[in-house]
């Protein structure tokens, strides 16, 4: 087997021009189904979307024989930027700021907790290690829509588990009157600085998403930790390195290449996370926990403003493109840390 592996490259002839064109033909045969499907249901809608964004496409244009929508130029774009949309409490800048903070704060907490628990479970001579590992993976296995609806009920002011726990512990110890904290609807924001507003509901959503998000980070971190040769730790210890120094010099360089791409992936996923905002807080209070995805959804599902929704999606596309470019730069800029 290994003999074949080493011998094979020298046996491969240099690809001739004829071979290359034949290869291209084979490649496109393999690609044909995917390209056909994507051309019709992915790329065509994207192009059609740009056209729609310049029109007043609405309910009146839906039927098979309906008239074409009117071209309105950049009107939809200006309406979005000028917050001139019938959705109550719509504020484009506030939504964007909240959305970025939502993704960033979640990912930081997910990665820190994920790495922390992975380190805990990687402690030498820990008993029941496999049991804990398989227990902690539970949140990953539950569909997000169910996580969102269950956590919504947990935060119910009267019957929710959170308030019952508060009443059963703090309430009993300090003899407080019944606590009925309405986490998801409390109207007074905890943080307010210009367009940056964090209501109590944000922390409710954060709690649910931290519960949902850290375990997978922990799995990835565990994989990275297991790839570290034990000799490196022994060598570091012999050089007199303390626990923190060993973490910095040995553990971190192995964690970074695994965690960084996963954190970027997590950022994009959390940025577009529909279910928690939509089902837990419903975007409230006053639209302060609304994300770009839920806003886009309301434009189609509730307002039937297909033209505006298309313009909104174009904005989303460029925002995500900017995020991808920035994170790619970050990944490249910090890659040398790897060595």
């Amino acid at each position: 087997m290994s003999a074949v592996v080493t011998a094979a490259p020298s046996l491969t002839p240099r690809p001739s021009r004829w071979r290359r064109s034949r290869e291209t033909r084979t490649a496109y045969l393999f690609l044909l189904p995917a390209l056909l499907v994507m051309a019709v249901i992915t790329f065509y809608p994207l192009v059609f979307q740009v056209y729609m964004s310049f029109t007043d496409y609405g309910l009146k244009n839906l039927a098979a024989k309906a008239p074409l929508p009117n071209v309105v130029g950049l009107d939809n774009y200006f309406r979005i930027l000028g917050n001139d949309i019938v959705i109550p409490n719509f504020d484009f800048v506030r939504i964007l700021v909240f959305n970025l903070w939502w993704a960033l704060s979640n990912v930081v907490i997910h990665v820190v907790l994920g790495v922390g628990v992975a380190l805990l479970l990687n402690t030498p001579k820990l008993r029941l290690r496999r049991f804990w590992r398989s227990l902690y993976i539970l949140p990953v296995m539950i569909p997000p829509i169910i996580v969102a609806t269950v956590w919504r009920n947990m935060f119910d002011p009267q019957s929710g588990a959170i308030n019952q726990i508060l009443n059963g512990t703090i309430g009993v110890i300090f003899r407080l009157p019944p606590i009925q904290l309405d986490v998801l609807n409390d109207p007074n924001p905890l943080v307010q600085a210009g367009p940056f507003i964090l209501p109590l509901a944000y922390f409710g959503l954060l709690a649910a998403n931290v519960w949902l998000g850290w375990p997978l980070n922990s799995v990835v971190a565990t994989g990275a930790l297991q790839s570290i040769p034990k000799e490196l730790y022994e060598a570091a210890e012999m050089d007199g390195a303390g626990a923190w120094q060993r973490f910095k010099a040995v553990t971190l360089p192995f964690l970074r290449p695994a965690m960084f791409p996963f954190a970027i992936y997590g950022f994009v996923v959390t940025f577009n996370l529909f279910y928690l905002s939509y089902f837990m807080s419903g975007g409230g209070p006053f639209g302060q926990t609304e994300l770009l995805v839920t806003t886009a959804y309301r434009l189609v599902a509730e307002q039937h403003l297909y033209g505006v929704a298309a313009a909104f999606a174009v904005f989303q596309f460029f925002i995500l493109l900017a995020i991808t470019l920035v994170t790619n730069r970050l990944a490249k800029a910090t890659a040398s840390f790897n060595a």
């Binding site: 994507m38 992915t42 790329f43 809608p45 496409y57 839906l62 577009n272 886009a296 189609v300 929704a309």
Partner: peptide
Amino acid sequence: AVLMLPAVATIAPLFVSLNKIQ
């Protein structure tokens, strides 16, 4: 590029296009 778009991003054109097929 398509991969990073959320499902919601093409919902309007998909809705109106599929709706035309009757």
